[in-house]
Amino acid sequence: MTFWNQWRVVVDEADRAQWVWEPLKSVGPLRFGMAHDDATQAVAGYLEPSPRSTNHYGDVVSHEFALTHAPGGPALTAYYDAGRLTCVAVNARRGPQVTLDGLRLVGRVPSELEAAFIEYTTTHGHELRYGPHADPGTETLGVVLRAQRAGDVVLSRPVFVAHDWADRCVHVPESRIPDSEWTDRHY
């Protein structure tokens, strides 16, 4: 496999870890508020810290986690504020499948996920909003449903936040989510 092709590979659904999202509380084994060492231990066996994957954005630090047994880039990016996990962005191509009441959120065609998410938020009384990049999300659940390229295909890349970051999380200029999540190319 060439260097460029490894960045386009999408993990089969059957090969993804299956995680459940508890809005504003946890994403699979990652609980908001945990320290990086605890997060590393929580995902051991499936994910490991990526080499040279730490970035600083003022008080916020991000760490990327890669699949333990597969080549390629990160499976997810964890953001820590004051040393505590406050945000998890799941890679559309390699990340675990994260569900909310059975609704699959990772690696989906964005328009199909958006339709299902509109139905979910309407049924459960959450206000759906759209950010400046036309990404749907809701502050009451603490999620923004981003899109990520996989070669010529676009797939869903959800960004989950803790309660402390939920206010204005959909509105990019006022969000506490680092600008890099909106501006960097995510491989």
Score class of each variant (00 low, 15 high):
Gly95Glu: 04
Val106Asp: 03
Val106Phe: 07
Tyr120Ala: 01
Leu24Gln: 11
Pro71Glu: 10
Phe117Ile: 03
Arg168Thr: 07
Asp81Trp: 15
Gly73Val: 00
Thr138Cys: 14
Ala162Glu: 11
Leu105Gln: 03
Leu24Lys: 14
Ala17Leu: 13
Val60Leu: 07
Gly137Met: 04
Ala75Gln: 06
Phe3Arg: 13
Gly131Pro: 02
Thr40Cys: 12
Val20Cys: 10
Pro136Ala: 05
Arg129His: 06
Ala42Asn: 09
Ser180Lys: 13
Thr123Val: 11
Val153Gly: 00
Met1Phe: 13
Asp152Met: 08
Ala82Met: 10
Ala166Val: 05
Val143His: 01
Tyr187Thr: 01
Ala82His: 15
Gln18Ala: 11
Val88His: 05
Asp38Thr: 09
Thr99Glu: 15
Asp101Ser: 14
Glu48Tyr: 08
Arg146Trp: 09
Pro132Glu: 14
Trp19Phe: 13
Val109Ala: 15
Gly95Asp: 02
Ala82Ile: 00
Arg16Phe: 09
Asp38Tyr: 07
Trp21Gln: 03
Ala75Pro: 06
Pro74Gly: 12
Gly73Cys: 02
Glu119Gln: 13
Tyr187Phe: 15
Ala89Glu: 11
Ala44Ser: 12
Phe32Tyr: 06
Pro29Cys: 15
Val60Ser: 03
Arg31Gly: 01
Leu76Pro: 00
Gly102Val: 06
Val153Met: 13
Ser156Phe: 02
Arg129Lys: 15
Tyr187Glu: 07
Ala147Thr: 09
Leu155Asn: 01
Leu67Arg: 15
Pro71His: 09
Pro71Asn: 05
Ala35Met: 10
Trp4Asn: 11
Phe160Gly: 03
Thr138Val: 08
Val161Thr: 06
Lys25Met: 14
Ala89Arg: 13
Gly125Asn: 12
Asp12Ala: 14
Gln97Ile: 08
His124Ala: 05
Ser180His: 15
Leu30Gln: 08
Ser175Tyr: 07
Ser175His: 04
Ala78Glu: 04
Ala89Asp: 08
Tyr80His: 13
His186Lys: 10
Tyr120Asp: 02
Val161His: 04
Gln6Pro: 00
Gly131Phe: 11
Trp165Ser: 02
Arg129Pro: 00
Gln18Thr: 02
Leu67Thr: 01
Pro173Leu: 08
Gln41Pro: 00
Ser156Met: 04
Glu64Asn: 10
Asp167Tyr: 10
Trp165His: 11
Cys169Ile: 07
Val153Ser: 08
His126Val: 00
His133Met: 12
Leu67Ala: 07
Asp12Asn: 09
Ala115Met: 05
